[in-house]
Computed example of a mutant assay.
Amino acid sequence: MAITPPQNRIWWNEPIHKIEMSWIVIAFLWGLFMFFFMIAWHFIGEQNLSTETYRINPDKYVEKVEAFAEKWQVGEEEGVPVVRPPAGEDVFLLARLWEWWPILELKKDQSYRIHMSSADWQHGFSLQPTNINIQVHPGYEHILILTPTESGEFSIVCNEYCGIGHHQMTGRIRVTE
């Protein structure tokens, strides 16, 4: 109940003031612009991720990643293999409680097909400080074509809550000249 109710209780029949109507029209047109711009940005933005995804048995994927890491391992950091595949090679990343495995060393300006999947739960692949975000599901192998354009160390952060150790789930990609 209002403190001072309107004189005319059927408020939706009241005329709309010109200023209020202009704001309604502006908001509606802005909404239409944003809707159509999202569609246009898909074509002109050159940021679209690959839609290449396959169904896979999580245990088989773990075996593929372990074979890949063993083949191209060049070192180890804190029990995690450091892997340096040749340019153009298929690269495999595994998400599992609570790590991205292995650490990758890639060459600048070389293209790689990065395969990623989860061994257990849904995880998020967020490559920082770039703006690449993918949900990674067990049973699905996601393939991303990546061409690093600057050298340095990039962090992989899980951005989908995956349990008590979620805040510690990180990985690394190093890009060298």
Results as ranks from 00 to 15, higher is better:
1 M>Q: 11
1 M>F: 11
2 A>F: 12
3 I>W: 09
3 I>C: 07
4 T>Y: 12
6 P>C: 03
8 N>P: 00
11 W>D: 01
13 N>I: 02
14 E>D: 10
23 W>D: 14
24 I>N: 06
24 I>Y: 11
26 I>M: 14
27 A>C: 12
27 A>M: 13
27 A>E: 10
28 F>Q: 10
28 F>W: 10
28 F>M: 14
29 L>P: 05
30 W>Y: 14
35 F>L: 14
36 F>K: 09
37 F>P: 01
37 F>V: 05
38 M>G: 12
42 H>I: 09
42 H>P: 00
43 F>M: 05
44 I>K: 04
45 G>Y: 02
45 G>Q: 12
46 E>W: 02
47 Q>T: 13
47 Q>V: 10
48 N>D: 15
48 N>S: 11
51 T>M: 11
51 T>E: 15
53 T>A: 13
54 Y>W: 07
54 Y>E: 08
55 R>V: 12
56 I>K: 08
58 P>A: 02
59 D>H: 01
60 K>G: 01
61 Y>M: 01
63 E>L: 08
68 F>A: 02
71 K>N: 07
72 W>F: 15
72 W>R: 01
75 G>C: 06
75 G>I: 03
77 E>C: 04
79 G>H: 05
79 G>E: 06
79 G>K: 03
80 V>L: 04
81 P>Y: 10
86 P>I: 07
87 A>W: 01
87 A>G: 15
87 A>Q: 09
88 G>L: 09
89 E>M: 09
90 D>T: 12
91 V>I: 09
91 V>T: 11
91 V>P: 07
93 L>C: 02
93 L>H: 01
93 L>D: 01
95 A>M: 13
95 A>G: 08
96 R>H: 11
99 E>T: 06
102 P>N: 04
103 I>T: 14
105 E>P: 03
106 L>R: 07
106 L>V: 04
106 L>S: 04
107 K>Q: 14
108 K>V: 02
109 D>Y: 08
110 Q>S: 15
112 Y>H: 07
112 Y>K: 11
112 Y>P: 10
112 Y>M: 09
117 S>N: 05
119 A>H: 05
124 G>F: 02
124 G>S: 07
126 S>W: 13
129 P>M: 08
132 I>K: 00
132 I>N: 02
133 N>V: 07
135 Q>D: 15
136 V>P: 01
139 G>Y: 07
139 G>P: 08
140 Y>K: 13
141 E>C: 06
143 I>N: 03
143 I>P: 06
146 L>D: 00
149 T>Q: 14
150 E>R: 12
152 G>K: 11
152 G>C: 03
155 S>N: 08
155 S>A: 06
155 S>I: 06
156 I>Y: 00
157 V>I: 13
159 N>W: 04
160 E>K: 14
160 E>H: 12
161 Y>K: 11
161 Y>H: 13
161 Y>E: 06
163 G>N: 08
164 I>L: 05
165 G>L: 09
165 G>W: 04
167 H>W: 08
167 H>Q: 07
169 M>S: 10
169 M>F: 00
170 T>I: 06
171 G>A: 04
171 G>P: 02
172 R>P: 00
176 T>G: 01
177 E>D: 15
